[in-house]
Simulated scan of single mutants.
Amino acid sequence: MVGSSREHLEEQQQSYKKYLAISIVLGVSLCILSLTPMLLGVMTNLIPVLVGVGLMLILIGTGTVCFTYSGNVYNAYTVLLTNGKDPNSFEEEVKAEARRKRIDYIIDEVYWPIIVVIYFAESFLIGGSFWAWSWVIFVLGGALEGTIKSIFDTWDN
């Protein structure tokens, strides 16, 4: 990761710590205070019990959103700082992914149909008891698929 970008992310993470602490305190407080509307409904006639239960659930949900959201944002900073990469390497990764997709396309559109044609050809031409074990070509084809992909990977590099 470029030094200035990393430093900028570290500064943002440090400045976010205060918001994280406030958000967690607010979320926990809302969860603890969520019992108040329900208890008011049970002990007094101020609000109906079902309205108290509804308000309790709203407070619990709001509290949960507070500390979950802020925790996820803080964790995103941590992940970016831990796993961050140099922006110049993105182009290389995109090219490598495009190569892998081409190889997968070739395997899916050419290799497996050839295996199926070989299966039917040998099964119908030889026939008889050959059907009992001719399916083995699919097992062999699956085993060779990884080898073929690695060969294509070495040719592209």
Rank of each mutant, 00 (worst) to 15 (best):
Q14N: 15
S15E: 11
S15L: 07
S15Y: 09
Y16T: 02
K18M: 14
K18V: 14
K18T: 14
Y19G: 14
I22C: 10
S23E: 06
S23L: 06
I24H: 15
V25K: 12
V25Y: 14
L26E: 06
L26Q: 05
G27D: 06
G27H: 06
V28R: 01
S29I: 12
S29K: 07
L30N: 01
I32L: 05
P37Y: 02
P37G: 03
P37K: 00
M38P: 00
M38C: 02
L40R: 04
V42D: 08
V42C: 07
M43H: 11
T44R: 03
T44I: 04
L46M: 11
L46A: 13
L46T: 11
I47Y: 03
P48S: 14
P48Q: 10
V49L: 10
V51A: 12
G52S: 03
G54N: 03
L55F: 08
L55Q: 07
L57M: 14
I58E: 01
L59Q: 05
I60W: 05
I60F: 08
G61L: 13
T62R: 05
T64N: 09
T64F: 12
V65F: 15
Y69A: 13
Y69K: 14
S70H: 14
S70E: 13
G71W: 05
G71E: 03
G71D: 03
N72G: 14
N72C: 11
N72A: 13
V73L: 12
V73D: 04
N75H: 10
A76P: 06
Y77R: 03
Y77V: 05
T78N: 10
V79D: 11
L80E: 14
L81W: 09
N83K: 15
G84N: 05
G84E: 06
K85M: 07
K85A: 09
K85E: 08
D86C: 07
N88L: 13
S89E: 15
S89F: 10
E93P: 02
E93C: 08
E93F: 08
A96M: 13
R99V: 12
R99F: 08
R99Q: 13
R100A: 11
R100N: 10
R102C: 06
R102L: 12
I103D: 08
I103S: 09
D104M: 11
Y105F: 11
Y105W: 10
I106K: 11
I107Q: 01
I107Y: 02
D108L: 08
E109Y: 07
W112N: 01
P113H: 02
I114K: 03
V116A: 04
V117W: 02
Y119I: 01
F120C: 03
F120K: 00
F120S: 00
S123K: 00
S123D: 01
S123W: 00
F124W: 07
F124L: 08
F124K: 00
G127F: 04
G127S: 06
S129Y: 12
S129R: 12
S129M: 09
